[in-house]
Amino acid sequence: MKFSEIESEQWESLKPYLDTCLLPLGGLHGSESPIEVITALEKLRDVLDIVEVPYKGRVVTYPAIQYQWHEEVTFVQMVDQICHQLKQQFTFVIVVTADEKIENMQFAHADMLVSSKHLDNPMKEEILQSVQQLWTKV
């Protein structure tokens, strides 16, 4: 579920069940036209739906990092740092992106990366299985 759907008084009781954080990465640079921004965000939403819809009761979608304004190395370090911080709250962190450049980056503190490659079967089914396997590591 989205972070904003959780009521403050519910969080303590839900916390044991919601152990996986989804961190969306938009990959925008600011040079995109409004139409390109819409397309990018719609694609990101579609990729997010792969995991968010079937696993709604175990994942929490956090606010997205929409822009990538640093050099690649700095960006990876920044995302990794955020993943590391998120692990103070969650057992697992899954990075979600529809950006082709980000798809090929390695985030050491993320447990998994879901991308536009997983939009269709059989890759979609594979990534869903991978998420379930991840949970068996608890």
Binding site: M1, L14, Y17, L18, V53, Y55, K56, G57, R58, Q132
Partner: peptide, 26 residues
């Protein structure tokens, strides 16, 4: 839609429990 927290159940979703709906989340 699972009545626990809203994940999606599957028929025969677990090898351990045949002929049942299983929710992969919890």
């Amino acid at each position: 839609v699972c009545k626990h927290l809203g994940c999606t159940v599957k028929w025969n979703g677990s090898q351990d429990f045949s002929d049942e709906y299983f929710c992969p989340c919890h």
